[in-house]
Deep mutational scan, measured.
Amino acid sequence: SAVVMEEGSPGEVPVLVEPPGLEDVEAALGMDRRTDAYSRSSSVSSQEEKSLHAEELVGRGIPIERVVSSEGGRPSVDLSFQPSQPLSKSSSSPELQTLQDILGDPGDKADVGRLSPEVKARSQSGTLDGESAAWSASGEDSRGQPEGPLPSSSPRSPSGLRPRGYTISDSAPSRRGKRVERDALKSRATASNAEKVPGINPSFVFLQLYHSPFFGDESNKPILLPNESQSFERSVQLLDQIPSYDTHKIAVLYVGEGQSNSELAILSNEHGSYRYTEFLTGLGRLIELKDCQPDKVYLGGLDVCGEDGQFTYCWHDDIMQAVFHIATLMPTKDVDKHRCDKKRHLGNDFVSIVYNDSGEDFKLGTIKGQFNFVHVIVTPLDYECNLVSLQCRKDMEGLVDTSVAKIVSDRNLPFVARQMALHANMASQVHHSRSNPTDIYPSKWIARLRHIKRLRQRICEEAAYSNPSLPLVHPPSHSKAPAQTPAEPTPGYEVGQRKRLISSVEDFTEFV
């Protein structure tokens, strides 16, 4: 048969007729292969192709491409040299491709048809291009793949890379869960390890502090508590009631339409708007009261037996805890006409967050109470924005700035309102402590230090009264110190430094 060459192609190359033996071998191979691939376009007849790359030819070592076609129900084999250009295909004639002069020997084609199974398996396991790669995943090629499931790999992101949580363990979102698992493993320790309690022994800490320079003076030496005195035992138990972190309780009120001037209507609300609910979820963490331990979680007086509701929101960081007394989460009882059960919590909070959804101005004093010092007013606006402002009593104007209003988005509203309420509550605590000038409020841990110092002074006084020969370590507060001759004046800087060093040991009130 003659071949018409394309323009620009090399000279004529004689194409030899395939021997009958080659056709029989390739026909047997075509019957084993699956003929249901995917359909081509209507211009080209339905056909199945599979590209198999052999590394070497037997005796020649030339890479070839073998295409199996099922045109007219008769499979045909096409061998081509890759750099050459194939002729145009037609549905009426068999596929013809040019070969190099080196394939002119018909014996070479017979060798190609009689490829060993080793070469076929190696060509099938190679990388296939384009559409033949999808075909190689079918059941027909499963014989050339190794048996057994593939090893499982770690989760992959859409980009093909490992997620960040699997790369950096410290930033993994499941870090707290692993800590819980470690605690569970520790709890399952053997009885021999049960006595080993991690941490620092208080006796060891005391020993280090006792021999430090801070205890060089007799006034700073630790003293032993009497065991037989019940009054001192009660004082030590009272110390446990003062937490070592700051605590805040903040009221949250929802004002519906037409309720801006009605205290009873505001306290009777059992739910609010959708934006109000989203605002609550951002204030803190939802907790169930019956599962809380009052000595570990500050509840601000809420009952854990269901008297004040089942849930509330709280927030904490390293040095403070805040609980929100939310009116809509507290039960509304029919027998309580004046809502006294709610007001006994909300009316005693220094700061209230008022979500004013009424469309009218909310005035300070609508919720009557002796300790309502500051109101954080949240007014929802259009386009997911809110107006946040402050209202306070006249005696609080020096501590709280009420002249600045803020426009905040719904997303950042819980954070801004919480921070403003916490700052206002700190100012309210300082303002409330002014009624007792001898006990200015600095912080909870300073209050613990003052309680310890008062307890020490009482013990020293009782020891001096029981044994008059012992001198008083600290003179009583009601006694007057003996007159001392004025010492020589020293520079102001040295006096300030000495006073600062003494105050650092005794108390921190002056620095606050």
Rank of each mutant, 00 (worst) to 15 (best):
A487K: 11
L455E: 13
L413W: 00
K394L: 08
L413T: 10
Q419D: 06
D410S: 01
K342N: 05
G359R: 08
A265L: 08
Y465F: 10
I287C: 13
E257C: 06
E233I: 14
S466V: 12
F311C: 06
Q241T: 09
V408Y: 04
D349K: 04
M330E: 05
L238E: 15
A427E: 01
P414I: 00
S433W: 10
T402F: 05
D308F: 09
T485A: 10
L224Y: 13
F415T: 04
E488W: 10
Q429T: 12
F508I: 15
N425A: 11
E384L: 03
Q237E: 12
P226Y: 07
P476R: 09
G496V: 08
Q391D: 09
Q293S: 12
V252F: 00
V354E: 00
L364A: 15
H248D: 02
L280Y: 12
I287T: 10
D341A: 14
S231I: 12
E488S: 10
S229E: 12
K249P: 05
F371C: 15
A463D: 12
I319H: 08
N436W: 05
L413A: 14
T247W: 03
V400T: 05
P380A: 02
V354T: 04
S273I: 01
L381R: 03
A487P: 11
G496M: 10
I242Q: 08
V388Q: 02
P331L: 03
T490N: 11
T247I: 09
D308G: 10
G398C: 11
P482F: 09
T509S: 14
S244D: 15
S235L: 13
I367E: 03
V236R: 08
T332I: 10
T281D: 11
R344E: 12
L225N: 10
C314Y: 15
R234W: 08
E384P: 02
V351H: 00
R411A: 12
K453N: 15
A265P: 03
R344M: 07
M426V: 07
G306M: 06
D318N: 07
A483I: 12
D295K: 07
A463I: 12
T509M: 06
V408I: 14
G359Q: 06
T277V: 08
D395R: 05
D357M: 01
M420R: 01
T332K: 13
D401G: 09
L224N: 13
T366E: 04
I353T: 00
L422S: 01
D382F: 02
L238S: 10
K296E: 13
N386V: 02
K333W: 13
S433D: 06
Q419T: 09
I223P: 08
S262L: 04
G365W: 04
A251I: 02
Y274R: 09
S443C: 09
N227A: 11
Q321L: 15
Y441W: 09
A464T: 12
K337F: 10
P243D: 15
N467K: 10
D395N: 10
L299W: 14
G365N: 12
G284M: 05
L224H: 10
E384D: 08
E228C: 07
P442C: 06
Y441N: 08
V376H: 00
P468W: 15
G282D: 02
S409R: 02
V400Q: 04
G309T: 12
E360L: 06
Q429M: 12
R448E: 12
L449H: 08
V351T: 04
I440Y: 07
F279S: 00
Q237A: 12
S443F: 12
A463S: 09
L472K: 15
H375A: 15
E494A: 10
D308K: 12
C392M: 04
T366F: 04
I440M: 09
Y465E: 08
F324P: 02
A447R: 09
I287N: 08
F508R: 15
E263K: 02
Y245W: 11
L346H: 05
N348T: 15
K368H: 09
K406M: 15
L413Q: 00
I242S: 07
D217L: 14
F371H: 12
Q259N: 02
V378R: 01
P471A: 09
S358M: 01
Q370V: 14
P475K: 12
V335M: 12
E218L: 13
S504K: 12
I242D: 06
Q419C: 08
V495T: 14
G369N: 09
K363P: 12
H271T: 10
N412K: 04
L413F: 00
E461K: 08
L387I: 09
I326T: 05
L472I: 12
A483Y: 11
R434E: 11
H432Q: 09
H375V: 11
D382A: 05
G256E: 01
S428A: 15
K363Y: 09
E233G: 07
P482Q: 14
I223C: 08
D357F: 00
H474C: 14
S262W: 03
Q310M: 15
N356R: 00
M396I: 15
A427R: 03
S229V: 10
S260K: 03
Y254D: 01
W315K: 02
P486T: 13
K333A: 13
S443W: 09
H432L: 08
C385W: 15
Q497E: 14
L238T: 07
P486V: 13
D336L: 10
G284R: 06
Q310P: 11
P226G: 11
I446D: 14
V378H: 00
R285W: 06
L286K: 11
P468V: 11
